[in-house]
Amino acid sequence: MSSLVLQRQSLRFRARSYMAFAITPRAPIVDWLADLDANLERSRGFFAGHPVVLDLSGVHLRAPGIAHLVEALEERNIRVLGIEGVDPAAGEAGLPPILRGGRGTPGTESTESGTAAAKAAPRKQSSPSLLVEDPVRSGQSVVFIEGDVTVLGSVGSGAEIVAGGSIHVYGTLRGRAMAGANGNARARIFCHRVEAELLAIDSYYKTAEDIEESLRRGPAQAWLEGSTLKISALN
């Protein structure tokens, strides 16, 4: 019986991104650990419960040295989620996995480099939302994984908005809107007038065909209920 159920369900893999502290030890390690201890003395529990990535690009350590360092950090209640900046050969069983492709806290991205909309957006690092004041034209793509995207104008057919958080469109949404792109099932999509080609939240989507005719051309919101994307009129 249980095997039957397993066969029916397909395995879903989804990528998620998280924020993690990256700490960068410097040689000599003994002095660096002493500095770290002094800092921890001042703010105890600073790293408690937070994932930490160990950036080893500043030091040359072999596997036993890395194991020793990871152990020293564990003793200080710093749990190492992964290591980066080392030769893949240095990765051994028992060590945290090697991470690649980490980015600093990024700003906005756009496939059409120099898209006026993305350029006009303020690049405040602390801001969890992106305001787009111009219409988003066909072929343009606004990607903002860090949070919400608000578009004051319309989103043209063939344009797309990808947001880590919710998407708000005060004009007509004719293109594609993908909210909760990093696995946030609580993200929503709001628009003043829905004529969308595709609405998606956390990888669950509906195409234009699936959007009820009675909702079209009116104000609407979309949210996720379990694994169903729901759309309702907003008024």
């Binding site: 120099g114 898209t115 111009d134 034209r137 066909s138 072929g139 343009q140 043209g156 063939g158």
Partner: peptide
């Protein structure tokens, strides 16, 4: 619409 986007960026 696509061309207008390009006029605003390129």
């Amino acid at each position: 619409d696509r061309i207008i986007g390009l006029l605003d960026s390129k």
